[in-house]
């Protein structure tokens, strides 16, 4: 195999049939996952966990903010207009802050360095209800 690997065409030629099938299957799988896990419904609360333990539950019908202690730093979580976001965290990449606001049931915001997850619960796509059954 001595094809040119620095162009899209060259890369495509370098793929074996099995490579292409696997790549296509993964892309289709990601779309299927996207459809299956598509956030929907009106959530009622944002549940905040650190290392799997629930440390706060924020009702979404009331604006407000809470500061919880993550594994690395304090994290400020804000509810505003039925949406939740992480507004402050001292973690290195601040991915949690840059993820922005989430407003659909089943959606999550994760802050890995703090072992913190904000999960929107309630509504049609509540993660505790298998939606294969409920449709």
């Amino acid at each position: 195999m001595t094809s040119d690997l620095f162009s899209v065409r060259g890369l495509w030629r370098a793929l074996t049939p099995a490579d292409r099938i696997v790549s296509l299957a993964l892309l289709l799988g990601s779309i299927a996952l996207g459809v299956a896990a598509r956030p929907s419904g009106e959530p009622t609360a944002a549940v905040v966990t650190v290392g799997g333990d629930v440390v706060a539950t924020l009702p979404l019908d009331r604006d407000g903010r809470v500061e919880v202690q993550g594994r690395l730093s304090p994290v400020t979580i804000e509810v505003s207009g039925h949406a939740v976001r992480v507004t402050e965290s001292a973690c290195p990449h601040r991915i949690c802050v840059r993820m922005g606001a989430r407003r659909h049931s089943g959606e999550i915001i994760a802050c890995v360095p703090n072992a913190l997850v904000v999960r929107l619960t309630g509504g049609a796509a509540d993660a505790s209800v298998p939606d294969a059954v409920t449709g």
Binding site: T49, V50, G51, G52, I108, A110, A115, V117, A127
Partner: peptide, 8 residues
């Protein structure tokens, strides 16, 4: 580990 379950 972080309690997100299948929401991930």
């Amino acid at each position: 580990l972080f309690g997100a379950g299948r929401s991930v």
